[in-house]
């Protein structure tokens, strides 16, 4: 990494030495803020997860009791199962739609400049707005089902949002609607970054379009796949707003996710110790994905 190295030895005058220290002085506040507000807070929450905190932090040490309790709670079980369903469908569907749209848009489409923003704009919206829109669209009384009935398809039924077994899938629908355009943009950038001469060479070699994509192009999109996976998975684990706006976690607890679980146990049920332990588990899940990724990225740069 090329950079200046103005480190002069001891005999420099005060101004010179000040100049040498300035970069560190400037970075120091950010570093302090990060150490306290991110890593300090993480440490504090980890600590709380081993205490008997309820409405307020309390410092009675209880070992792993919160964690063992946590896994006894039916709602947590639901939340984890839901997360598994939601995250896998969300990641897979977003990737498929995103990749498909990117490939289609990359076929020298007239009006690409018009279509691309339409695919992308949902991600400028708040999940609360997205949730509001889909909440009513999926509402059987006034939404899609009602519209189909009015159009004469009397037997049409689409009440997933009211159905405890299916409600989690409505969250997938809304989340895919919001994020798939973004994944499209990532793949499109990847596609545009591929050297055109390679494609021409492959065509000279007699590759069909399908073979071209399967053998030449998709393998080169590996970084885009990886980025998409990392970003979508961390979004999925953090998902909170959308659930609140779309289903409020219901019906019952049917659409609870770890994020909503943590919030309700910590702030409304006054089980701070258990809330903290659920947050720690969320953090560890994300860390398991992010740390190797960031480590590889930063090492590569060196």
């Amino acid at each position: 990494m090329a950079a200046t190295d103005p480190m002069l030895s001891g005999g420099a005058d005060f101004r010179t030495r000040l100049q040498n220290w300035l970069p560190k002085i400037v970075l120091a506040p950010s570093l302090a803020v990060m150490v306290i507000f991110v890593y300090g807070f993480i440490a504090f929450t980890v600590y709380l997860s081993f205490t008997d905190s309820r409405m307020l932090p309390s410092y009675g040490f209880v070992g792993f009791e919160n964690y063992s309790d946590l896994f006894q709670i039916r709602t947590w079980d639901t939340a984890v199962t839901n997360l598994a369903i939601f995250a896998s469908l969300y990641i897979v569907i977003c990737t498929i739609i995103g990749l498909m749209l990117a490939i289609l848009l990359d076929q020298k489409i007239r009006g690409e400049g018009f279509l691309r923003p339409i695919f992308l704009y949902p991600m400028a919206l708040s999940f609360i707005v997205t949730g509001t829109a889909w909440k009513w669209m999926l509402d059987p009384a006034i939404g899609l089902e009602n519209t189909m009935h009015l159009w004469g398809w009397e037997s049409f039924e689409f009440n997933w949002i009211k159905d405890g077994d299916m409600a989690i899938y409505t969250i997938v629908i809304a989340a895919v609607w919001q994020s798939s355009g973004f994944v499209m943009a990532m793949f499109l950038a990847g596609l545009r970054g591929i050297d055109n001469e390679i494609l021409k060479a492959a065509q000279m070699d007699g590759a069909s379009n399908f073979q071209l994509y399967r053998r030449i192009i998709l393998p080169q999109l590996r970084p885009a796949f990886l980025s998409a996976f990392v970003i979508l998975s961390h979004l999925a684990i953090k998902s909170y707003d959308l659930v609140i706006a779309l289903t409020g976690g219901g019906p019952g607890n049917a659409t609870a996710l770890p994020a909503t679980f943590m919030y309700s146990y910590t702030f409304t049920r006054n089980q701070m110790g258990i809330g903290a332990s659920s947050a720690v588990i969320m953090l560890m899940t994300i860390a398991a994905i992010m740390v190797p990724y960031l480590y590889a990225e930063l090492r590569e740069k060196k």
Partner: peptide
């Protein structure tokens, strides 16, 4: 040394 002055600790 530039013009008889040691510049090791002199800013650019």
């Amino acid at each position: 040394v530039i013009k008889d002055r040691v510049v090791n600790d002199v800013q650019p």
